[in-house]
Design a protein around this nucleic acid. Structure first.
Lengths: 190, 190
DNA sequence: GCACACATGTAAGATGTTACATGATTAG
DNA sequence: CTAATCATGTAACATCTTACATGTGTGC
C-alpha cells in the first residue's frame, strides 16, 4: 500500500529510470521499505496508468531506458495520503515463532540462532550508525527536511538497538535454555 | 512461511477447531504473528493434505466443527523447521514512509500522526505489561518453557518501548517540524 | 418459525517472491 | 564478434486482506 507513495517520494527527489529507482531503494528507502525491481516496475506501470507519473521513453520495450517523473496530480495524491492516519505494524519475526515452538517442543537449542541474530542486528546497527555519522553529524545545522530524514534513520537505529538488547537479555538466561528438558504438553497424537 | 509452524505449535499445546485456533491467535500468538481465520483454514487444509495434522469431522462441510491435532510427522516437521536459521525482519512501517514523504513535500504536519502512534504504542505496551504482571511475576519460579515464552513477550515489550522512545524523541524536535517551510527539491513536472 | 451468533468456506484482488526471458550497451 | 552487464519485462506462485456466502445450533 505504501510502495506507490515511497516511489512517488523518491521520484520527487529526483526523476529517474526504474532500475535507478530500484538501486536507490536498496540504499536509502530500502532500509525501511524494501522492494524488488519487479514490484517497482509493476507499481510504476500502475502509477503511469493512473496519471500520477509520466514516462519519457516507449512503453513495453525491453532494454530501453524509461525516465519517470511525478506529475502535479501525483504530488497532490502523495500529499493527501501523507496526511492520512495509519496503523503501526506489530512485530512479526520468525524467530519469535521459533522460540514459541521451542518452548512447546522442549527439544531445540535456540542459543545458536540467538547469537546469529545478535550478530546480524549488530551489523545492521553499525550500518545505520555509519550513515548517521556521515549524513547527520551532531554539530551540523539541520533543516526541517533533515530532521525528518534523521527521524527515520533514528527509527532504524532504535529498532536494531532494541533487538540487540533483547538478544543479550535472552541469552543471559541461556544456561536455563541451552539444554531444555522435554516437557509433555499433550499426549502425542498419532 | 511461519504460519504453518505457528499453527502446529498452537495445536501441539492443545488440539482444537479452526475457529478456536483463530481466537487463540488473537490472544497470544497474535501478538507477534497475526492471521485471519481464512489464512488459518487454508493453512489447516494444506497441513492436512501434507499429513502433518489429522482432523476429526467431515471435510468441506460448512457449519460443522472440525477438531485438529498434530501427528508425529507434524511434530517432526516442526522440530526440523525450528532448528533452521532465519533472517530477521527489517522495519517496515508506513509511518516512516510518511515522514520521508513529508520531508520531501515540506507541506505536511506530522505531529498529529506521531502523537496518535505514541498513544497506540503506549496502549499496546500496557497490554503486554499486564500480561507480564499476570503470567510472569518477578518472584515466580520459571521453567525452561516459561523462560522462552517470557522472552517472546519481552520482545514485544522492548519493541513497543523502542517505538515509544522514538516517538518522544521525534516529537521533542516537533517545533522544527510543526510548520515546515516549503522546500523545492525538484522543478515541479507537468 | 425467526433472529442471531458461530464455524466453515469461496472468491477476488493486492502484495511479495522467485525464476527466467529479451533487447540494448559496452568492453575485450 | 562475443561475452558481460544493464534495463526492462513476463510468468508463476505464495501470502495477505476483504468481502461475502452457507450451514449449524441456540434463544425467544
Amino acid at each position: 500500500m505504501a510502495l506507490a507513495q515511497a516511489i512517488l517520494t523518491s521520484l520527487l527527489e529526483k526523476p529517474c529510470t526504474g532500475a535507478e529507482l530500484a538501486r536507490r531503494f536498496d540504499k536509502s528507502l530500502g532500509h525501511f521499505w524494501q522492494a524488488t525491481h519487479q514490484q517497482i516496475y509493476r507499481e510504476l506501470g500502475k502509477l503511469e496508468q493512473d496519471g500520477l507519473v509520466r514516462a519519457h521513453g516507449l512503453a513495453a520495450t525491453r532494454g530501453q531506458q524509461r525516465h519517470f517523473e511525478v506529475l502535479a496530480t501525483g504530488k497532490a495524491a502523495l500529499e493527501s495520503w501523507c496526511a492520512e492516519p495509519g496503523e503501526p505494524r506489530p512485530i512479526r519475526d520468525e524467530l519469535l515463532v521459533r522460540l514459541r515452538a521451542a518452548a512447546v517442543l522442549g527439544t531445540v537449542d535456540v542459543r545458536v540462532e540467538l547469537l546469529r541474530h545478535q550478530g546480524m542486528h549488530a551489523q545492521t546497527l553499525d550500518r545505520y550508525l555509519a550513515i548517521e555519522a556521515n549524513d547527520f553529524p551532531a554539530d551540523a545545522q539541520k533543516t526541517v527536511a533533515d530532521e525528518l530524514q534523521f527521524a527515520v534513520l533514528r527509527a532504524g537505529i532504535v529498532y536494531e538497538q532494541s533487538w540487540l538488547n533483547w538478544c543479550e537479555q535472552t541469552l543471559s538466561h541461556a544456561p536455563a535454555i541451552q539444554k531444555p528438558a522435554l516437557v509433555e504438553v499433550w499426549p502425542p497424537a498419532d
